[in-house]
Structure formats: structure tokens, C-alpha cells
Amino acid sequence: MTRDEVLAGINQEIAEQRDAAEHEADPARRDRMLRHARSRADLAEEEADAVAADIVENEQAALSLRVPVSLSMALKARAEAERIPLSALVRRMLTQALEQPSSPVLTVEQVEEIARRVYRESA
């Protein structure tokens, strides 16, 4: 569901609230219902953004893996230090690792230089 679809749904709910308020016989309750609808309308954009973000956040798949105990402890300590859940830390780290362009550990030139040095030293 897109943000615009969420916003359309919120606006529909606000229209229904206003319609219900117009049909309310009790003036005090009608005023309260209209104030609530106006308040919600004022925040509709923000509410749509938050709901859309929640929808995206919840579109996830579970991933289970085994890591060395030392790595697990280090990740837990870092998550605690950053005051975020372990899963959020791991998700962020994986995302950053995939977004960064990968480069070889050694370039072709470096491998060739090592090979020449080894050849010279062994002669």
C-alpha cells in the first residue's frame, strides 16, 4: 500500500467522522467530533507517512543464521551501546555492506608485485 493510498483512506475516515458529527443531535458531542476530525485532518499527512513507513518496515522476511559466540557477543554489546535492538543493528549493517561497492581485497597490480617480490627473493 502506497502513502497516497494510506492518505486517501485517512481522508475517507475523516469525511465519515465529519458526516457522523453533522448527524449528531447533541451539540457538545457534535463539536467534539468535529474538533477531532479537524485535528486528524491537520495531521493526516504525518499519519499517512507513519503508516506507510510501518507497512514498509513490516514487509520483511526472517533470516536465521549461526555465528561464532564471540561475534554474537560483540554484536549484542554494540547494539546495547547504540541502544537499538540487535536485529536493527544487524539489518543496518547488512544493508550498508550490500550498498557499498565491493572491491577486491588485492588489486591485480598488488598481486603481480607480490609475485615479482617472491620470485626475486627466491632466486
Rank of each mutant, 00 (worst) to 15 (best):
V56F: 02
E22N: 15
A88T: 15
L89K: 05
A48F: 02
D26A: 08
E113W: 05
P85V: 05
M1N: 11
D4L: 09
V111W: 08
R18Q: 15
E80Q: 09
A74L: 06
D42S: 11
E46N: 07
A50M: 09
M73Y: 01
M1S: 11
L34W: 00
P85A: 09
E45L: 09
P68N: 09
R120T: 15
E80M: 03
S64F: 07
T95G: 09
T95M: 07
E46L: 14
D49R: 04
Q12G: 04
P68M: 00
A15N: 11
L63W: 07
A81Q: 15
E22P: 07
R18H: 12
E24H: 03
E57Y: 11
A79G: 06
A115T: 09
M73H: 03
E57D: 10
E47A: 12
A8C: 02
R38F: 12
R32F: 15
S70D: 12
P27S: 06
Q17M: 15
E16P: 06
T107Q: 13
R30T: 01
A52W: 02
E46V: 08
V111A: 12
V67T: 05
L98I: 10
E99A: 11
S39H: 10
V51W: 00
L86D: 00
S122G: 12
L89V: 01
D42V: 08
R29D: 03
R66L: 02
E24G: 05
S72V: 00
A53S: 07
R78K: 12
A115K: 09
L34A: 08
A115F: 10
R120Q: 15
R117A: 13
L34S: 06
D19S: 15
S87N: 11
E46C: 05
L98P: 00
R29N: 02
A88C: 06
Y119K: 14
P101A: 13
A28L: 11
L43H: 14
V105Q: 13
R66W: 01
E47M: 04
A123S: 13
E46Y: 08
A8I: 00
R91C: 05
N11W: 00
E45A: 08
P68H: 06
L65Y: 08
E16W: 03
L43D: 11
S103F: 05
R120D: 11
S64W: 04
Q17E: 14
R92L: 12
P104E: 08
S122C: 13
A79L: 02
V67E: 04
I114C: 09
A48I: 10
R35D: 13
A8K: 02
E82D: 15
A28I: 10
A20M: 12
A74F: 02
V118K: 12
R3Y: 03
R35H: 12
A44R: 01
Q100N: 11
K76F: 00
A44H: 02
L86P: 01
